[in-house]
Amino acid sequence: MGGRMQDKTALVTGSTSNIGRAIAEAFAAEGAHVVVSGRNRERGAQVIERIRTAGGRADFVEADLDGSAGASRDLAERARGALGGRIDVLVNNAGIYPGGTTAATDEETFDQVYAVNVKAPFFLTAAVAPAMAQAGGGTIINLGSWIARLGIPVGALYSSTKGAVETLTRAWAAEFGPMGVRVNAISPGVIVTRAVGESKPHPGEIMMKGTPVGGVGSPDAIAHAAVWLASDEAAFVHGTVVDVDGGRTGAAVIFV
Score class of each variant (00 low, 15 high):
122 F>Q: 00
10 A>M: 04
31 G>T: 13
157 L>I: 07
217 G>P: 12
244 V>A: 01
68 S>L: 14
102 T>W: 02
201 P>D: 08
25 E>F: 05
142 N>K: 13
125 T>E: 00
172 W>L: 04
64 D>Y: 01
220 D>F: 06
77 E>M: 15
189 G>T: 06
78 R>M: 04
161 T>Y: 09
153 P>N: 12
100 G>R: 12
119 K>F: 14
238 H>M: 13
133 A>C: 00
243 D>T: 05
253 V>R: 03
224 H>D: 10
92 N>R: 02
256 V>T: 15
148 A>S: 13
108 E>F: 14
116 V>D: 08
153 P>W: 14
226 A>H: 00
94 A>P: 11
250 G>C: 03
69 A>C: 06
141 I>F: 10
198 E>V: 09
222 I>G: 01
142 N>W: 07
4 R>T: 14
144 G>N: 09
74 D>G: 11
173 A>Q: 10
127 A>Q: 09
188 P>C: 01
96 I>D: 09
45 A>H: 08
53 T>L: 08
120 A>I: 13
167 T>R: 11
76 A>V: 05
11 L>H: 03
206 I>C: 14
40 N>Q: 05
203 P>E: 14
73 R>P: 15
70 G>M: 15
186 I>N: 12
203 P>C: 12
216 V>P: 06
174 A>E: 04
232 D>W: 06
9 T>F: 07
14 G>Y: 01
124 L>M: 14
251 A>M: 13
135 A>Y: 05
166 E>P: 03
172 W>V: 00
226 A>N: 01
223 A>V: 07
128 V>K: 02
206 I>E: 15
254 I>N: 09
194 R>H: 13
42 E>K: 02
153 P>G: 15
127 A>E: 10
143 L>M: 09
15 S>C: 08
18 N>Y: 03
87 I>S: 04
164 A>P: 04
88 D>M: 08
77 E>P: 10
132 M>K: 08
153 P>R: 13
15 S>G: 02
184 N>P: 08
24 A>H: 11
146 W>K: 13
218 S>K: 04
156 A>Y: 07
160 S>K: 06
134 Q>R: 13
175 E>S: 03
94 A>G: 09
240 T>I: 10
245 D>L: 07
209 K>D: 15
244 V>S: 09
212 P>M: 13
208 M>C: 14
125 T>Q: 00
42 E>F: 02
87 I>E: 01
119 K>D: 03
40 N>T: 03
10 A>H: 02
147 I>K: 03
255 F>A: 12
203 P>L: 11
185 A>K: 10
187 S>H: 07
166 E>W: 15
66 D>I: 14
227 V>W: 11
251 A>F: 14
89 V>K: 07
94 A>T: 14
8 K>T: 02
85 G>E: 09
151 G>E: 13
9 T>C: 03
14 G>M: 04
91 V>N: 04
